[in-house]
């Protein structure tokens, strides 16, 4: 199970890096979304994986049974997903706004804040 997820994370990261190498900012953001999911999966696997043992405490007991699923990484992943959602919503709107005000999504042509020396003259 861990191996399978590790491979999935690898594929996600590879696809994400491919997208992030593009000049198009929108593709970059898509890559970022993919790689953030890979990071979330990493946390999930970091908590070790178990099958069919939810972290529920039996009535009368004080602790969950031995080998129950680790609930903490799942809570962390949930937090990270929510935060990531907010950030990417902002980033997508920013890219849209960049397209309407700057008229391009090509990061090479985004030189308003740092104009080229020769162009400035």
């Amino acid at each position: 199970m861990e191996t399978l997820l590790a491979l999935a994370i690898g594929v996600l990261v590879a696809a994400a890096v491919y997208l992030m190498l593009a000049r198009n900012v929108l593709r970059f953001i898509f890559g970022l979304i993919l790689i953030s999911n890979a990071a979330n999966l990493t946390i999930f696997v970091g908590g070790r994986l178990t099958q069919g043992l939810p972290p529920l405490i039996e009535e009368g007991a004080y602790a969950p049974v031995e080998g129950a699923a680790n609930a903490l990484p799942q809570a962390l992943v949930l937090t990270a997903i929510v935060i990531g959602f907010g950030l990417f919503a902002f980033a997508l709107v920013l890219v849209f706004r960049a397209f309407t005000t700057l008229g391009t999504l090509n990061s090479d042509k985004m030189r308003v804040a740092e104009p080229r020396e020769d162009a400035a003259k």
């Binding site: 900012v25 980033a91 890219v95 960049a98 005000t101 990061s107 985004m110 804040a113």
Partner: peptide, 13 residues
């Protein structure tokens, strides 16, 4: 402003 959006893209990403 244009410069802000431009700088913002790099800062954010």
């Amino acid at each position: 402003s244009k410069a802000q959006i431009d700088g913002g893209i790099k800062y954010v990403t």
